[in-house]
């Protein structure tokens, strides 16, 4: 790895791999995370996001491959890395039997925050997490959004250079999710590099760069704009028509169509290239005696883009998985 890389990047990995017996949880992953950016690490359940983060934080050893975090080798200098990073785990890692203040105080002492600064820092975190007046409440008695913000406070109380957030918004209500991302922006403005995993595709909009992981393999990585621009060769067409079943079956056999997905009352068609226009589609449906009420080009969602990077064979099962996850959370 070239020397200059290490200074520009907060995280670089090369062929990072983790096996659990037969399972390859992370399969030759090459990450490039620039200093100062918000990096979104996207993938469905079991894709290997947490395992990757855990190797970077020194929670697990890699089976294969190498990685540098803030210029330190993850295999050789995990202790140097630990002092400079913050990590908020998927499970929030709060002590439920400690109060808000005691949790913050404990994490501050774990990172040797000097006593003089500690009080100020705790106060800041309480304010940030909107927990003023609840300093004496047991963490167990906090509701989801508060717990999440307290966990964030605990993971940044030592002002890390790099913050890993593993599914920070999982199981939190939409309002809290929005508030949370506002906090993340503020941290980013202070210069902290942020790596957040999520399986909410819409949260990709909050990130500067994106990495897609599926079944342990990176399928795409780059700045959000780049990915959006290059991902789709075709386009997404949104259709409302009747009867839906026949329409779906017909569209699936139509040449130039890569994928047909039903979202409630609408059918999404992803085309293979630009040659098939919405007007063409409407014409073909009408010929088939289907009652078309709406056909228009849609802005591809991050999910569409993610899917586009996955091999054709896996698309259907991935769509189904993402749909299930969406439904579970509603």
């Amino acid at each position: 790895m070239a020397e200059l890389d290490l200074n520009d990047y907060a995280v670089i990995t090369k062929g990072l791999t983790k096996r659990f017996g037969e399972i390859v949880a992370v399969d030759h992953v090459d990450l490039r995370i620039k200093r100062g950016e918000i990096y979104g690490f996207l993938g469905p359940n079991g894709a290997g996001k947490s395992t990757t983060i855990r190797m970077l934080c020194g929670l697990m050893d890699a089976t294969e491959g190498s990685g540098y975090v803030l210029g330190h080798d993850i295999a050789a200098e995990p202790e140097r890395i630990k002092e400079k990073i913050g990590y908020m785990s998927q499970r929030f890692s709060l002590y439920e039997d400690l109060t808000v203040r005691e949790n913050l105080d404990f994490y501050a002492s774990l990172y040797s925050v000097p006593n003089g600064i500690k009080r100020v820092r705790i106060e800041q975190m309480v304010q940030m997490a909107d927990l003023t007046g609840r300093e004496g409440t047991l963490a167990a008695h906090l509701s989801g959004g508060w717990k999440q913000r307290l966990a964030l406070g605990c993971s940044i109380i030592h002002k890390p250079e790099l913050l890993f957030l593993d599914e920070p918004t999982a199981g939190v209500d939409p309002v809290s999710r929005r508030n949370f991302w506002d906090l993340i922006y503020r941290l980013s403005e202070e210069g902290i590099t942020i790596v957040a995993t999520t399986h909410y595709m819409d949260e990709a909009e909050h990130c500067d760069s994106l990495g897609f992981i599926y079944q342990g393999r990176m399928t795409a990585q780059g700045s959000r704009e780049e990915i959006k621009a290059n991902a789709l060769k075709g386009q997404v067409i949104e259709i409302e028509c009747h009867p839906m079943r026949e329409a779906t079956i017909f569209l699936e056999t139509l040449p130039g169509v890569a994928e047909v997905v039903r979202f409630g009352n609408t059918i999404h068609v992803v085309t293979e290239d630009r040659s098939l226009s919405p007007a063409d589609v409407e014409a073909r449906l009408t010929v088939e005696n289907l009652k078309v009420s709406r056909v228009e080009a849609a802005i591809p969602s991050i999910e569409d883009i993610f899917i586009a990077f996955v091999g054709l064979a896996d698309r259907r099962s991935l769509r189904a998985q993402l749909k299930r996850m969406r439904e579970r959370e509603l």
Binding site: L59, Y87, S89, R91, S93, Y107
Partner: peptide
């Protein structure tokens, strides 16, 4: 899950 937080700390 608090052990994770202890392990990533110094």
């Amino acid at each position: 899950g608090t052990l994770e937080a202890l392990i990533v700390s110094p």
